[in-house]
């Protein structure tokens, strides 16, 4: 599968990364180079193999239902590029 500039646009917008038209050809070449190389996985016979999500071979530990965190709005907001009082602020969103 080789990526057309149009599909790269779609992916970039899904990923919220602005791409200039001028960058598209070079980007397409790089991505298709990588994807072409990845294609060799199709040689592998994976019939009946259970996918492995992670290396940790155990079950999920659960914590108790106790309030142990939060209560520090100033710390949460300290790094914010823009805040309004104790809110984060962004350009108006239209739903």
């Amino acid at each position: 599968m080789s990526l057309e500039p149009a599909s790269i646009r779609r992916i970039a917008s899904l990923a919220r990364i602005h791409v200039e038209d001028a960058e598209l050809p070079a980007l397409a070449a790089e991505l298709n180079g990588i994807l072409g190389w990845i294609e060799q996985l199709n040689e592998v016979n994976v019939d009946g193999i259970e996918p492995l999500t992670g290396a940790a071979q155990m079950a999920l530990k659960m914590r108790e239902d106790v309030v142990t965190d939060g209560g520090y709005p100033d710390k949460v907001l300290a790094n914010a590029p823009e805040r309004a009082g104790d809110f984060f602020a962004v350009p108006k969103v239209v739903e």
């Binding site: 239902d65 309030v67 142990t68 965190d69 939060g70 949460v76 907001l77 009082g85 104790d86």
Partner: peptide, 21 residues
């Protein structure tokens, strides 16, 4: 009492960002 994946409280109507980990 606490959130699904964090220890912050869940009470309704608290001051903004005061129940955030």
């Amino acid at each position: 009492r606490a959130k699904l994946f964090s220890g912050a409280a869940t009470d309704f109507g608290a001051p903004p960002n005061s129940q955030v980990s």
